[in-house]
Amino acid sequence: MAMIFTGGHSTTLDALSLAAVAIGGASSKAYDEQVRAVGEPSALIGYPYFIETPSGAVRSGYVDASGLLPRVFTDETGAYNVFWGDEALAMQAEYSG
């Protein structure tokens, strides 16, 4: 399954296009998903992100040259949140104490 989000879908995307690819895992209870930021490389590299799953797991960092964010592993299908830019930095500060 593939989903494509454009800047018009959320003000937090700051004109970035995103492609999230969900790949079924080895069992029907394991899912492995990964977000890839697509756009002008000079605008993407170093752009902050923050990922939060429904179970409370979080991942954060900065987009590298590949545009690939860390894989998100879940036991069942469902939504998870990806925050970008200033919102991602605020979430990183909130979780780091």
Score class of each variant (00 low, 15 high):
F50W: 04
A30G: 11
R71G: 03
R71N: 04
M91I: 03
V82P: 05
P54N: 02
A65G: 06
D64V: 04
Y47T: 15
S55F: 01
I4W: 00
L18A: 08
L68N: 09
M3F: 04
L44E: 13
G67A: 12
T74R: 09
A37H: 11
I4V: 07
A57T: 02
L18H: 00
N81H: 08
M1D: 09
F5W: 10
P41T: 15
A79K: 06
R36M: 11
D32V: 01
I51N: 03
M91Y: 13
S96T: 06
G24S: 04
E40N: 12
K29S: 11
G7E: 13
S96Y: 07
W84G: 05
V63P: 13
S66R: 06
T53S: 02
S60F: 13
R36Y: 06
A43D: 14
G46V: 13
L68C: 07
L44G: 08
Q92K: 13
S96E: 08
T6F: 08
L69A: 11
S28V: 09
V58F: 04
I4E: 04
Y95T: 10
A37M: 15
D14W: 02
Y49L: 07
A90G: 07
V35G: 06
L18Q: 03
K29N: 07
I51E: 05
D86G: 08
G25P: 03
A15L: 10
A22N: 08
P48G: 13
A22D: 10
